[in-house]
Amino acid sequence: MSNRQALRELQHRLAQRMQDAREQKTELANWLAVECAGYGLLFSLKQAAEIFTPVAIKPVPYAQPWLIGVANLRGGLFTVIDLAVFLGLREAGAQRTDAAQARLVALNPDLNINCALLVDRLVGLRSDEQLTLLPVESAEAGKLAPRPRFSGPLRRDADGRSWQQLHLDALSTHEQFLRVVV
């Protein structure tokens, strides 16, 4: 009898928690906000994977200046791209303001490319509710104009900071991104 009573109480508590969860307005994070050369970028959490502190990177001869080299990340060999240099936001070889905050953001394995993007710093997670979509005309005035097909809409947060969305799936198949040899 006590087992039945305990089971009913457990079911009641679970039902109550599920109801409370449905009624609560929760903001789910959709974006990883990063910074490259002072410019705010958004990566979809579905397309970005793990985040790593920079490790030893082996240079690759005859590679584009934005391809830093290859690195061993958790036993996998990853190509490392300096995203700020690739996007033209910084010259190759230029010093970062705070190299200690730099991070490697690996692309999701579903994109079928072992690649990690070197960003200057992580800013945090953002939800769609925290960002306002800006009209296309505003995005055309951004630093990435003319807009490559991997750039998504421009968004603005409550503090007035602009964030450029990047489609990592489109970036991973972009012709220039795949042309790593000089």
Rank of each mutant, 00 (worst) to 15 (best):
residue 1 M to C: 09
residue 7 L to H: 02
residue 10 L to Q: 14
residue 14 L to C: 09
residue 14 L to R: 02
residue 17 R to T: 11
residue 17 R to N: 10
residue 18 M to H: 12
residue 19 Q to L: 15
residue 20 D to F: 03
residue 30 N to H: 15
residue 31 W to Q: 01
residue 31 W to I: 04
residue 32 L to W: 02
residue 34 V to Y: 00
residue 35 E to W: 01
residue 41 L to R: 00
residue 42 L to H: 00
residue 45 L to A: 05
residue 48 A to K: 04
residue 51 I to V: 15
residue 53 T to S: 14
residue 54 P to E: 12
residue 55 V to F: 05
residue 55 V to Y: 01
residue 58 K to I: 09
residue 60 V to Y: 01
residue 60 V to F: 05
residue 61 P to R: 04
residue 62 Y to A: 11
residue 69 G to W: 00
residue 70 V to N: 04
residue 70 V to Q: 05
residue 73 L to W: 00
residue 75 G to M: 02
residue 75 G to D: 01
residue 77 L to G: 06
residue 78 F to V: 03
residue 82 D to E: 13
residue 88 G to V: 12
residue 88 G to P: 13
residue 89 L to A: 07
residue 92 A to W: 07
residue 93 G to I: 06
residue 99 A to F: 06
residue 105 V to L: 05
residue 114 N to G: 05
residue 115 C to S: 11
residue 118 L to D: 00
residue 119 V to Y: 01
residue 121 R to H: 10
residue 121 R to G: 13
residue 124 G to Q: 02
residue 125 L to C: 07
residue 126 R to G: 05
residue 127 S to C: 15
residue 130 Q to S: 15
residue 130 Q to M: 15
residue 132 T to Y: 03
residue 134 L to A: 04
residue 135 P to D: 09
residue 140 E to R: 13
residue 143 K to Y: 06
residue 147 R to W: 10
residue 147 R to E: 08
residue 147 R to G: 14
residue 151 S to D: 03
residue 154 L to K: 09
residue 156 R to E: 13
residue 157 D to M: 11
residue 158 A to T: 12
residue 161 R to V: 12
residue 162 S to Q: 13
residue 163 W to R: 02
residue 169 D to L: 07
residue 169 D to H: 07
residue 174 H to G: 01
residue 175 E to S: 15
residue 175 E to M: 11
residue 181 V to T: 11
